[in-house]
Amino acid sequence: MSQTSPSGPGALRLIFPQWQGASGPSTHQLHPGVDAHDTQLSFNLGPALLELLSPDHDGPTAHVPVSTDTSDEALATVDGIYARGAVVRQLTAALTILRDAAPESVVTFGGECSVSVAPFSHLASVYGEDLAVLWIDAHPDTSVPGDSYTGFHSMALATLAGEGDAGIIAELPALISPSKILQVGLRQWDDEGIAVKERLGIKSVGIMDTSEDSRRVLDWIAGTGATQLAVHIDLDILDRRDFTNSVGTNTDGMRMSELVRLIADVSTVANIAGLSLTEHLPVELMRLGGLLRNLPI
Protein backbone atom coordinates (compact mmCIF):
# COMPACT_ATOMS: atom_id res chain seq x y z
CA MET A 1 0.00 0.00 0.00
CA SER A 2 2.82 2.41 0.88
CA GLN A 3 6.54 2.77 1.01
CA THR A 4 8.34 1.84 4.21
CA SER A 5 9.58 5.39 4.78
CA PRO A 6 7.83 8.73 4.49
CA SER A 7 8.78 10.39 1.21
CA GLY A 8 7.53 12.74 -1.48
CA PRO A 9 6.89 16.48 -1.61
CA GLY A 10 5.19 16.52 1.78
CA ALA A 11 8.08 14.86 3.63
CA LEU A 12 10.26 16.68 6.15
CA ARG A 13 13.43 15.33 7.70
CA LEU A 14 13.66 16.78 11.21
CA ILE A 15 17.00 16.70 13.04
CA PHE A 16 16.29 17.16 16.74
CA PRO A 17 19.34 16.37 18.95
CA GLN A 18 17.62 17.01 22.28
CA TRP A 19 19.41 15.40 25.20
CA GLN A 20 18.02 17.19 28.25
CA GLY A 21 15.02 14.89 28.63
CA ALA A 22 17.21 11.86 29.30
CA SER A 23 19.76 13.59 31.46
CA GLY A 24 20.32 13.84 35.19
CA PRO A 25 22.69 12.47 37.81
CA SER A 26 21.97 8.83 36.94
CA THR A 27 22.93 9.22 33.27
CA HIS A 28 26.67 9.17 33.95
CA GLN A 29 26.38 5.65 35.33
CA LEU A 30 25.32 4.43 31.88
CA HIS A 31 28.62 5.36 30.26
CA PRO A 32 31.66 4.22 32.26
CA GLY A 33 34.86 5.81 31.05
CA VAL A 34 33.11 8.79 29.48
CA ASP A 35 33.68 12.32 30.73
CA ALA A 36 30.74 13.64 32.78
CA HIS A 37 30.24 16.62 30.43
CA ASP A 38 30.17 14.29 27.43
CA THR A 39 27.69 12.06 29.23
CA GLN A 40 25.32 14.98 29.69
CA LEU A 41 25.44 15.52 25.93
CA SER A 42 25.36 11.84 25.02
CA PHE A 43 22.13 11.96 23.03
CA ASN A 44 23.22 15.12 21.21
CA LEU A 45 25.66 13.36 18.87
CA GLY A 46 23.46 10.47 17.74
CA PRO A 47 21.10 12.37 15.39
CA ALA A 48 23.99 13.79 13.33
CA LEU A 49 25.32 10.28 12.80
CA LEU A 50 21.88 8.98 11.86
CA GLU A 51 21.60 11.73 9.27
CA LEU A 52 25.08 10.97 7.93
CA LEU A 53 24.39 7.24 7.62
CA SER A 54 20.88 7.49 6.19
CA PRO A 55 19.95 7.32 2.49
CA ASP A 56 19.92 10.54 0.50
CA HIS A 57 16.84 12.68 1.05
CA ASP A 58 15.52 14.93 -1.73
CA GLY A 59 12.97 16.73 0.44
CA PRO A 60 13.39 19.54 2.98
CA THR A 61 15.50 19.12 6.11
CA ALA A 62 15.16 21.21 9.26
CA HIS A 63 17.34 21.34 12.36
CA VAL A 64 15.84 22.15 15.76
CA PRO A 65 18.24 24.37 17.72
CA VAL A 66 19.27 22.59 20.92
CA SER A 67 21.24 24.15 23.76
CA THR A 68 24.42 22.46 25.01
CA ASP A 69 24.47 24.45 28.26
CA THR A 70 25.16 22.01 31.11
CA SER A 71 25.12 24.57 33.92
CA ASP A 72 23.06 23.87 37.02
CA GLU A 73 20.80 26.81 36.15
CA ALA A 74 20.09 25.51 32.65
CA LEU A 75 19.32 22.02 33.95
CA ALA A 76 17.19 22.97 36.94
CA THR A 77 14.30 20.67 37.75
CA VAL A 78 11.05 22.67 37.59
CA ASP A 79 7.56 21.27 38.21
CA GLY A 80 8.97 17.76 38.36
CA ILE A 81 10.77 17.92 34.99
CA TYR A 82 14.55 18.03 34.68
CA ALA A 83 15.75 20.95 32.50
CA ARG A 84 12.13 21.93 31.90
CA GLY A 85 13.08 25.37 30.57
CA ALA A 86 15.24 23.94 27.79
CA VAL A 87 12.74 21.18 27.03
CA VAL A 88 9.90 23.69 26.59
CA ARG A 89 11.95 26.12 24.46
CA GLN A 90 13.11 23.34 22.15
CA LEU A 91 9.67 21.79 21.89
CA THR A 92 8.28 25.20 20.95
CA ALA A 93 11.01 25.63 18.32
CA ALA A 94 10.20 22.22 16.82
CA LEU A 95 6.48 22.99 16.73
CA THR A 96 7.19 26.31 15.00
CA ILE A 97 9.25 24.55 12.33
CA LEU A 98 6.47 22.03 11.77
CA ARG A 99 3.75 24.66 11.65
CA ASP A 100 5.65 26.74 9.10
CA ALA A 101 6.70 23.78 6.94
CA ALA A 102 3.28 22.07 7.20
CA PRO A 103 4.64 18.65 6.16
CA GLU A 104 2.37 15.73 5.39
CA SER A 105 5.01 13.32 6.70
CA VAL A 106 8.03 13.61 9.00
CA VAL A 107 11.15 11.55 9.63
CA THR A 108 12.82 12.55 12.89
CA PHE A 109 16.40 11.76 13.80
CA GLY A 110 16.37 12.51 17.49
CA GLY A 111 18.24 12.44 20.71
CA GLU A 112 16.02 11.11 23.48
CA CYS A 113 12.45 9.88 23.12
CA SER A 114 10.64 13.15 23.76
CA VAL A 115 11.64 14.40 20.29
CA SER A 116 8.64 12.45 18.95
CA VAL A 117 6.18 14.65 20.84
CA ALA A 118 6.29 17.58 18.38
CA PRO A 119 6.14 15.68 15.05
CA PHE A 120 3.51 13.19 16.25
CA SER A 121 1.33 15.97 17.63
CA HIS A 122 1.70 17.80 14.32
CA LEU A 123 0.68 14.69 12.39
CA ALA A 124 -2.31 14.24 14.71
CA SER A 125 -3.38 17.78 13.80
CA VAL A 126 -3.12 16.87 10.10
CA TYR A 127 -4.80 13.45 10.14
CA GLY A 128 -6.97 13.51 13.26
CA GLU A 129 -8.56 10.16 14.13
CA ASP A 130 -7.07 8.68 10.95
CA LEU A 131 -3.65 8.54 12.68
CA ALA A 132 -2.47 5.70 14.91
CA VAL A 133 0.83 5.44 16.79
CA LEU A 134 3.18 2.47 17.14
CA TRP A 135 5.54 3.16 20.07
CA ILE A 136 8.39 0.64 19.68
CA ASP A 137 10.32 0.94 22.92
CA ALA A 138 11.55 -1.17 25.83
CA HIS A 139 10.11 1.44 28.24
CA PRO A 140 6.50 2.67 28.50
CA ASP A 141 7.37 6.42 28.44
CA THR A 142 4.11 7.07 30.30
CA SER A 143 5.52 8.57 33.48
CA VAL A 144 4.26 11.93 34.73
CA PRO A 145 5.72 14.82 36.75
CA GLY A 146 5.93 13.82 40.40
CA ASP A 147 7.37 10.40 39.67
CA SER A 148 10.84 9.73 41.06
CA TYR A 149 12.54 9.93 37.65
CA THR A 150 12.32 13.47 36.28
CA GLY A 151 13.57 13.03 32.70
CA PHE A 152 10.96 14.21 30.20
CA HIS A 153 11.73 11.37 27.78
CA SER A 154 10.01 9.03 30.23
CA MET A 155 6.89 11.22 29.91
CA ALA A 156 6.77 11.53 26.11
CA LEU A 157 3.94 9.11 25.32
CA ALA A 158 1.84 10.19 28.29
CA THR A 159 2.20 13.79 27.11
CA LEU A 160 0.95 12.89 23.63
CA ALA A 161 -2.03 11.19 25.26
CA GLY A 162 -2.81 14.33 27.28
CA GLU A 163 -1.38 13.26 30.66
CA GLY A 164 1.29 15.23 32.49
CA ASP A 165 2.50 18.82 32.50
CA ALA A 166 -0.51 21.00 31.69
CA GLY A 167 1.61 23.85 30.32
CA ILE A 168 3.42 21.61 27.87
CA ILE A 169 0.24 19.83 26.79
CA ALA A 170 -1.43 23.19 26.12
CA GLU A 171 1.29 23.99 23.55
CA LEU A 172 0.54 20.90 21.44
CA PRO A 173 -1.62 21.32 18.31
CA ALA A 174 -3.32 17.96 18.87
CA LEU A 175 -3.35 14.98 21.22
CA ILE A 176 -3.58 11.28 20.43
CA SER A 177 -6.28 9.09 21.94
CA PRO A 178 -4.89 6.20 24.02
CA SER A 179 -7.06 3.89 21.90
CA LYS A 180 -4.93 4.86 18.89
CA ILE A 181 -1.61 3.98 20.59
CA LEU A 182 0.05 0.55 20.61
CA GLN A 183 3.28 -0.14 22.51
CA VAL A 184 5.51 -2.75 20.87
CA GLY A 185 8.34 -4.59 22.61
CA LEU A 186 7.72 -3.22 26.10
CA ARG A 187 10.05 -4.97 28.57
CA GLN A 188 10.35 -2.62 31.56
CA TRP A 189 7.19 -3.59 33.42
CA ASP A 190 8.57 -2.23 36.72
CA ASP A 191 8.63 1.32 35.36
CA GLU A 192 6.58 3.92 37.26
CA GLY A 193 4.77 4.78 34.03
CA ILE A 194 3.03 1.40 33.92
CA ALA A 195 0.31 2.68 36.26
CA VAL A 196 -0.55 5.52 33.85
CA LYS A 197 -0.39 3.18 30.85
CA GLU A 198 -2.86 0.81 32.48
CA ARG A 199 -5.18 3.58 33.66
CA LEU A 200 -5.30 5.04 30.14
CA GLY A 201 -5.86 1.60 28.63
CA ILE A 202 -2.90 1.78 26.23
CA LYS A 203 -2.47 -1.66 24.70
CA SER A 204 0.85 -3.41 24.13
CA VAL A 205 2.36 -6.45 22.43
CA GLY A 206 5.69 -8.09 23.13
CA ILE A 207 8.77 -8.66 21.02
CA MET A 208 8.05 -9.62 17.40
CA ASP A 209 9.90 -12.94 17.33
CA THR A 210 8.32 -14.46 14.23
CA SER A 211 6.59 -13.30 11.08
CA GLU A 212 3.29 -14.51 12.54
CA ASP A 213 3.67 -12.03 15.39
CA SER A 214 3.15 -9.11 13.02
CA ARG A 215 -0.45 -10.25 12.67
CA ARG A 216 -1.23 -8.98 16.18
CA VAL A 217 -0.07 -5.50 15.19
CA LEU A 218 -1.86 -5.62 11.84
CA ASP A 219 -5.08 -6.70 13.52
CA TRP A 220 -4.77 -3.85 16.00
CA ILE A 221 -4.26 -1.32 13.19
CA ALA A 222 -7.32 -2.67 11.41
CA GLY A 223 -9.32 -2.31 14.61
CA THR A 224 -8.44 1.38 14.93
CA GLY A 225 -9.65 2.17 11.41
CA ALA A 226 -6.53 4.32 10.92
CA THR A 227 -4.87 4.59 7.51
CA GLN A 228 -1.92 6.71 8.71
CA LEU A 229 0.81 5.63 11.14
CA ALA A 230 3.37 7.46 13.24
CA VAL A 231 6.10 5.01 14.27
CA HIS A 232 8.46 5.76 17.16
CA ILE A 233 11.58 3.58 17.41
CA ASP A 234 13.75 3.78 20.50
CA LEU A 235 16.95 1.94 19.63
CA ASP A 236 16.96 0.39 23.12
CA ILE A 237 14.42 -2.04 21.66
CA LEU A 238 17.21 -3.77 19.75
CA ASP A 239 18.88 -6.92 20.99
CA ARG A 240 22.45 -6.32 22.15
CA ARG A 241 23.63 -9.07 19.81
CA ASP A 242 22.78 -6.70 16.95
CA PHE A 243 23.32 -3.22 18.38
CA THR A 244 25.14 -1.96 21.46
CA ASN A 245 25.04 1.84 21.10
CA SER A 246 21.90 2.39 23.17
CA VAL A 247 20.71 2.03 26.75
CA GLY A 248 20.55 -1.45 28.24
CA THR A 249 22.59 -4.64 28.25
CA ASN A 250 19.95 -7.30 27.62
CA THR A 251 19.84 -9.91 24.88
CA ASP A 252 16.05 -10.30 25.00
CA GLY A 253 15.33 -7.48 22.57
CA MET A 254 14.13 -7.32 19.01
CA ARG A 255 16.56 -8.38 16.31
CA MET A 256 17.22 -5.88 13.52
CA SER A 257 15.72 -8.21 10.93
CA GLU A 258 12.54 -8.51 13.02
CA LEU A 259 12.22 -4.73 13.30
CA VAL A 260 12.67 -4.27 9.55
CA ARG A 261 10.09 -6.99 8.86
CA LEU A 262 7.57 -5.41 11.22
CA ILE A 263 7.89 -1.98 9.59
CA ALA A 264 7.54 -3.53 6.15
CA ASP A 265 4.46 -5.47 7.27
CA VAL A 266 2.63 -2.49 8.75
CA SER A 267 3.38 -0.42 5.65
CA THR A 268 1.20 -2.82 3.65
CA VAL A 269 -1.92 -1.79 5.59
CA ALA A 270 -1.29 1.88 6.43
CA ASN A 271 0.79 4.79 5.23
CA ILE A 272 3.78 5.57 7.43
CA ALA A 273 3.43 9.32 7.81
CA GLY A 274 5.86 9.63 10.70
CA LEU A 275 9.00 7.75 11.68
CA SER A 276 11.27 8.64 14.59
CA LEU A 277 14.63 7.09 15.43
CA THR A 278 15.82 7.93 18.93
CA GLU A 279 18.32 7.24 21.71
CA HIS A 280 21.42 6.43 19.70
CA LEU A 281 24.36 6.51 22.14
CA PRO A 282 27.67 6.43 20.20
CA VAL A 283 29.70 5.77 23.35
CA GLU A 284 32.94 4.78 21.60
CA LEU A 285 32.88 7.99 19.56
CA MET A 286 32.28 9.98 22.72
CA ARG A 287 35.38 8.38 24.23
CA LEU A 288 37.29 9.16 21.04
CA GLY A 289 36.17 12.77 21.26
CA GLY A 290 37.63 12.96 24.75
CA LEU A 291 40.93 11.65 23.42
CA LEU A 292 41.00 14.19 20.58
CA ARG A 293 40.52 17.06 23.02
CA ASN A 294 43.60 15.90 24.91
CA LEU A 295 45.87 15.61 21.88
CA PRO A 296 47.90 18.51 20.36
CA ILE A 297 45.80 18.66 17.17
Rank of each mutant, 00 (worst) to 15 (best):
S54L: 00
A102W: 03
A222D: 13
G289I: 01
A76T: 15
D69I: 00
T4C: 03
G8L: 08
D141E: 05
G223I: 01
D219R: 14
L277N: 00
G110T: 06
G46Q: 01
D190F: 10
F120I: 10
G21F: 04
L98Q: 09
G201S: 11
E279V: 11
G167I: 01
R187H: 14
D242Q: 02
T278K: 02
D38G: 06
D69R: 03
E129Y: 01
E171M: 14
G24V: 00
G274K: 09
A101S: 15
N245P: 00
S148Y: 12
I81G: 05
F16E: 01
P17A: 02
I181D: 11
S276N: 12
S276T: 15
D242A: 01
H31D: 02
V144R: 14
M1R: 03
A101K: 14
G248N: 08
A270F: 09
H63K: 11
A222I: 00
H63M: 12
L295C: 04
H57E: 11
E112K: 02
L262Y: 08
H31R: 05
L12W: 11
A22S: 14
H37K: 07
P282Q: 09
L95K: 03
I176E: 03
H63T: 13
P9W: 05
V66N: 03
L75N: 15
H139E: 04
L288Y: 15
S154Y: 09
L172K: 03
V217N: 07
R216T: 09
L275K: 01
T249Q: 11
F43C: 13
G274Q: 07
A124W: 13
L175G: 15
A156F: 12
G8A: 04
I97F: 13
A118M: 05
A11W: 11
Q183N: 05
A158W: 12
L288C: 04
A76M: 13
I207G: 03
A161L: 09
V78G: 01
L134Y: 09
H57C: 06
M155N: 04
S204R: 12
G193Q: 08
S114H: 11
S125N: 05
T27Y: 09
I194M: 15
I81S: 08
P119R: 04
L291R: 13
G59F: 07
I297W: 06
M208G: 08
G151K: 02
M254P: 05
A83Q: 07
A94R: 01
P55F: 11
T39M: 01
A118C: 02
T108R: 02
A270V: 04
R293K: 12
V87Q: 12
Q183R: 11
E279M: 05
A36V: 10
T39H: 03
S116V: 12
H63S: 12
A11P: 00
K197R: 15
A22Q: 04
P9Q: 06
E212M: 04
L291A: 07
R84Y: 07
A132K: 06
L157Q: 06
T68F: 02
E112Q: 06
H122R: 04
P55G: 07
R13E: 03
G59V: 04
G110W: 10
L14C: 02
V196G: 05
L75M: 15
L281P: 01
P173G: 10
I15V: 15
F152Y: 15
E129W: 00
V269H: 11
I81M: 13
S148C: 00
L175W: 05
A36G: 00
L229I: 10
F152A: 14
T244A: 11
L238D: 08
D265I: 02
T278N: 14
G167Q: 08
V283W: 04
